[in-house]
Amino acid sequence: MEIEIFKAEMAELLEVDSVELTDELSSFECWDSLTILSIIALAGEKYNVTLSAAEINKSHTVGGLKELIKLKMS
């Protein structure tokens, strides 16, 4: 997984110019159930990983989400 590409994908979904790995997911203005579904769709399509809404909420930060996807890819 290329970190900069992942950050750019997350920035696009979170509707901001850029994100940092330490950013709290729930702190973004557009954070809602549809954004969570968008992350599930992204993970499935780009990383071939199946995520649940509960797992995403538990990952808390952009970095946590990255680790979750990496773990599932391995």
Partner: peptide, 12 residues
């Protein structure tokens, strides 16, 4: 195919 508008892909 559950995907909000912003994540809809042409390929899918």
């Amino acid at each position: 195919y559950i995907a909000p508008l912003k994540s809809v892909s042409e390929e899918k």
